[in-house]
């Protein structure tokens, strides 16, 4: 057990990736290993990237890996892709864009599928972040598609959140989860060579201008960075290294304004929520599922023999004796 943790601390990719796997697969011992991992965390700068599908997030991550490696920093990447709701399977495609770094021992890329609807995603990602943190990765980049609540939750694990947008999405700024815009530390206009990039910029500026000062903790107003065409190597790598600098600046801002504490509290709350859910809700649901009660209950609900509220109260009374 402790041996496992030691290995991870020494940066052993095999042990780390296996532990992440066990967390995803909900293997019981993995949770107890995490208990030993948790106290060792706190080293890494966690950077979240979110934005609509195909916005170029993975391409950006690939560029950022390069930029951070040139600064001499080690990088972990957690790339989240959706599980097919129909088959439970997934093609995890983000890695393709970063594959040129596969052999760099200072880079560890791990793809994660969103898996079931029962949540748990942000727990798996949270734990994966802890694991990479304990491995000693200086920067951890977390990529998710910015469409669902789960993804917004994941961003609570990040010190710095990049919201990646592309021109020509029409009125899509509105469509992007308001929650995501709220947590943005930096806006990136990707594929800026395309028509509409100035318009997008204006819209973002207007949006930021309308926000109350309280939306900018410590006075950090999210910068809007344009990222040049990924197909033009020199321009792109320039844009990306500017972006990396801005990411660093944001972290320094958190530190200098003593905002890390706020951040940690927010993260701890999310994490705790998850942990409670995992400790309470999962076993309850599993229990109900295993003895077939869940199906029966759903049947009763469908036939309107009872309502979900009463039923939930019944369950709570049964399992959580203390509360009632």
């Amino acid at each position: 057990m402790v041996d496992k943790v030691k290995k991870i601390q020494s940066g052993d990719v095999r042990s780390a990736s296996r532990l992440i796997r066990h967390i995803e697969d909900n293997v019981a011992e993995a949770r107890s290993t995490m208990k030993d991992i948790f106290p060792l965390t706190g080293h890494s700068h966690v950077v979240g990237l979110t934005g609509p599908p195909g916005a170029g997030k993975s391409t950006l991550v690939d560029g950022l890996i390069d930029a951070f490696r040139k600064m001499g920093r080690t990088v972990g990447v957690i790339a989240v892709d959706p599980t097919s709701p129909f088959t439970g399977g997934a093609i995890l495609g983000d890695r393709i864009r970063m594959q040129r770094h596969a052999e760099d021992p200072g880079v560890f890329v791990r793809s994660v599928a969103t898996r079931g609807a029962l949540g748990g995603l942000s727990r798996a990602v949270g734990d994966a972040i802890h694991i990479m943190d304990v491995m000693g990765k200086d920067v951890i980049l977390v990529e998710t598609v910015g469409t669902g609540q789960q993804e917004v939750d994941i961003m609570h694990y990040a010190h710095t959140v990049l919201v990646v947008l592309i021109p020509g999405m029409g009125d899509d700024i509105q469509a992007i989860k308001a929650g995501i815009l709220e947590i943005a530390s930096i806006f990136v206009i990707n594929k800026a060579e395309r028509e509409g990039s100035s318009k997008l910029r204006r819209e973002l500026v207007t949006m930021l201008n309308m926000a109350p000062e309280s939306a900018f903790p410590g006075g950090w107003r999210p910068p809007i960075l344009k990222c040049d065409n990924a197909f033009e190597p020199s321009g792109f790598s320039q844009s990306v290294s500017d972006l990396a600098l801005s990411i660093n600046e944001h972290y320094e801002h958190l530190v200098s304004k003593s905002l890390i504490g706020n951040w940690s509290a927010r993260k701890a709350a999310t994490e705790f929520n998850e942990a409670i859910r995992c400790a309470i809700l999962d076993p309850v649901l599993n229990d109900l599922m295993a003895n077939g009660e869940l199906d029966a209950m759903i049947g009763r609900l469908v036939n309107k023999e009872t309502d979900p509220y009463t039923l939930a109260e019944e369950i709570a009374t049964r399992y959580l004796k203390k509360m009632t």
């Binding site: 599980t83 097919s84 088959t87 439970g88 399977g89 997934a90 093609i91 995890l92 495609g93 890695r95 393709i96 594959q99 040129r100 596969a102 052999e103 793809s111 599928a113």
Partner: peptide, 20 residues
Amino acid sequence: FRDAGFEVIYTGCHQTPEQI
């Protein structure tokens, strides 16, 4: 494989054995 419920990591073309 996806349709069979597996999680698939596809590397794309032109990979070296080391990268894989």
